[in-house]
Structures are given as structure tokens and as C-alpha cells.
């Protein structure tokens, strides 16, 4: 990591992006996702079934990162807003890679998210590799850890994501 810009070096080990609240979790939003993946789990759909397990219906865990992403437009919008993995996009820009893909994800699920909740997101940069040749073009690998908490600081999930940023050959 000797050839990294100083700004990127200063980010390693720190919570570069902290999102206090973006959207309020809503059932119809997560049911759209369930429809997309054809997931009929009654914990997401059926209030009477959910009552004996989770008190109320819950959102699919796979959507946990989604609740930290702002709307793509809102009144008075001045910038791109906070994207679902804002630190990843900041790294792409700082390292001049137009493209980036997720290569691996590890997620530990804790308390589920329910309608009315909001999610606090903390994105911590763990590592950035030297540049290497990849199938897609020259690029670097980086790893980001994410801590998800509810508005009352209850732990919702812990995520480790690995990315490849690259530019076309």
C-alpha cells in the first residue's frame, strides 16, 4: 500500500462514513424486494404469523444495507447524496477507478429491522491493495467493514465487503 494517495492512507482503520438516518423502513418497500426475488417467507408478509416469532413482520436481512441509501432525488438535492456503499464510491474516485464491483460479502445478522425503524451505518476502511492486473483491467482490491445499528443503537448487523475497483484496459 506504499503508492496510495495520502487521503486514502488516512482513511484506513477509521469510520470514514457515518450515516445517522436516511429513510424510514416501510413494509411495502421490503415487499417489493420480496416480489423481485419471489420470497414468500411469512415473517415478511403475514402479521398474524409473525406475531408469535418477531411480534411484527420484519424486513429481509439482505436489505439491511439498503436502508442506509438516500433517495436518488429529493427537493433541494445538492449532490449525489449517500449511496448504499458511499465509502466504496469515495475510494473509486480517490483512486481514479471508474468501475467497481463487489467480490465477496460476509454478513452477521443480529436484531431484525421492522417498519418505522431507521438505520445508522458506520463504514470503516480496513485495507487497500497495491494495483494489479485483473481480467477487467488494472485495479485494486479493498475491504470495508460496516456496522449497522437501529436508531436506539441496538446492533442490527455486521458486514465485511471486498471490492475490486478497476479501469478498462
Amino acid at each position: 500500500m506504499t503508492d496510495l494517495p495520502s487521503i486514502v492512507k488516512s482513511w484506513i482503520g477509521t469510520a470514514v462514513v457515518v450515516v445517522e438516518r436516511t429513510v424510514t423502513v416501510e413494509k411495502e418497500s421490503w415487499l417489493g424486494f420480496c416480489a423481485a426475488i419471489q420470497d414468500g417467507n411469512p415473517l415478511y408478509w403475514d402479521e398474524s404469523f409473525a406475531q408469535s416469532h418477531t411480534e411484527r413482520t420484519i424486513a429481509p436481512f439482505a436489505m439491511l444495507p439498503s436502508w442506509g441509501s438516500t433517495h436518488p432525488w429529493y427537493p433541494g438535492k445538492q449532490s449525489d447524496g449517500i449511496r448504499a456503499m458511499e465509502l466504496h464510491f469515495m475510494l473509486k474516485e480517490a483512486l481514479s477507478y471508474p468501475n467497481g464491483i463487489v467480490t465477496s460479502v460476509e454478513m452477521a445478522y443480529h436484531e431484525p429491522v421492522r417498519a418505522g425503524d431507521s438505520v445508522r451505518v458506520e463504514q470503516i476502511l480496513r485495507s487497500v491493495s497495491d494495483e494489479r492486473a485483473t481480467r477487467l483491467g488494472p485495479g485494486r482490491d479493498w475491504t470495508i467493514e460496516v456496522v449497522y445499528r437501529r436508531q436506539d443503537h441496538v446492533l442490527l448487523g455486521l458486514e465485511t465487503m471486498s471490492f475490486l475497483g478497476y479501469r478498462r484496459n
Partner: peptide
């Protein structure tokens, strides 16, 4: 995207 893949895997398991 990776969220859709995570959703498909979770659904596969709970099905």
C-alpha cells in the same frame, strides 16, 4: 447486484 443475490440465498435457505 449483491443484495439480490443475498436475498436469493436467504430465501433458498428459509424455503
Amino acid at each position: 447486484n449483491n443484495y439480490t443475490q443475498a436475498g436469493l440465498i436467504n430465501a433458498y435457505v428459509t424455503d
